[in-house]
Design a protein around this nucleic acid. Structure first.
Lengths: 150, 150
DNA sequence: ACTATATAGTGCGATATCGCACAAATAGGA
DNA sequence: TCCTATTTGTGCGATATCGCACTATATAGT
C-alpha cells in the first residue's frame, strides 16, 4: 500500500477521533453529576439494540475490559438505571436489563441535546448528515466484522 | 427542530463514537507497553500542527482538564518523547516541544498501522475514504468553531 | 503604582479504567 | 464419566482521568 493511501486512512481516523472528543464533551455537559458518557453509552446500547445482554457481551461491544464493564454496571445499578439478574441457564453469567428509570433517563438525555443539534444544524444541515451517515455506517459495519473475524 | 432531525444527529454521533472505539483499539494494539492513545494523540497533534504549544493550549485542544494534560505530558517527558521548556515571556507558562525520539516514535506508530489499513482497504477503498473525509473535516471545523464561539 | 481579576500549572483526593489472577461453571474430548 | 480447556464475572493493585483548591504570574481598571 502506497504511503499516500495509508495517510488518508490515518487522516480519516484522526478526524473521527477529534469529532468524538467534541461530541463527547457536548454530551457530558448535559449529563447529571456523577454520570459519564460510559454510563450513557451502555444505556443507549441496551435501548437501541436489546437489553438482557450479559456483561461480557457489553464489554466486547464497547471494546473494553470485562473489569471495566463490571465497574460501569455497578454504577448504573446503584442508580437503579439497570437491573442485573442471573442468567436462566448459564449460572456463570448474568443478564443486564434496563429499568423504566433507565429508559426515561436515556430519553431525557437525548432530548436535552436537541438545542445543541439545533445550533449545529444552522451550519451542518440534516441533509448533510444524511449524506454522511450511510458511509459511516458502512465503515463501522466493515470494521466491526473484521474485528470479530480474528 | 422536529424529532426526526434530532435523531439523525444523534445517530451520527453514535456512529462516530463507535468508530472511535474501534479505531482506538486498533491503534493501542500497536503501541508499546505503557503507551496510551492519549500519549500518541499529543505527539500527533504537536507533529501535525506545530510544537511549542503550552500545556494549557493542548488541554483545550483535547477537551481535557489541565491536570490530565499535566499528567500525560509528565509521562511523555519521562520517556524523552517531548521536552518542556519555560515560556520565554510568560513565566507562568511552558512550551512543549517534540524531541527527535518523539517524532520518530510517531512515524513508527503510523507506519505500524499500515497492515491494518491494507486489510481495511479491501472492503473500504481509499476512494471511499476520499469521499468521506471532506464531509468529516467540514463538520469538525464547524463544531470546533462553535465550541470556541461560546 | 495599586488593587482586583484572570490565567497557567500543579498537588491532592476521588473515581474510572486497565491488566493480572482467580473461582465457579461450562464445554469438549477421551 | 473424567479430565482438560474455555468462559464468565470479579477482587486487587496500578495507572489515567477528573474536580477542587492553591501558588505564582500576568492583565486590567483606577
Amino acid at each position: 500500500m502506497p504511503r499516500a493511501a495509508s495517510d488518508v486512512y490515518f487522516q480519516l481516523f484522526n478526524e473521527i477521533g477529534i469529532l468524538e472528543q467534541l461530541s463527547r464533551a457536548v454530551l457530558e455537559a448535559k449529563l447529571p453529576d456523577g454520570m459519564l458518557s460510559s454510563h450513557f453509552g451502555v444505556l443507549n446500547h441496551l435501548a437501541r439494540l436489546k437489553d438482557g445482554q450479559s456483561p461480557n457481551e457489553l464489554a466486547r461491544a464497547f471494546q473494553v475490559p470485562k473489569t471495566t464493564m463490571t465497574h460501569t454496571l455497578a454504577g448504573l445499578k446503584k442508580n437503579d438505571l439497570v437491573k442485573i439478574l442471573p442468567h436462566p441457564r448459564d449460572k456463570r453469567s448474568k443478564c443486564v436489563w434496563l429499568t423504566d428509570k433507565g429508559r426515561r433517563f436515556r430519553e431525557t438525555a437525548i432530548h436535552s441535546l436537541r438545542p445543541d443539534f439545533e445550533k449545529l444544524s444552522k451550519q451542518f444541515s440534516p441533509k448533510d448528515v444524511k449524506v454522511l451517515l450511510p458511509h459511516l455506517e458502512a465503515l463501522r459495519i466493515i470494521m466491526d466484522a473484521q474485528r470479530d473475524g480474528e
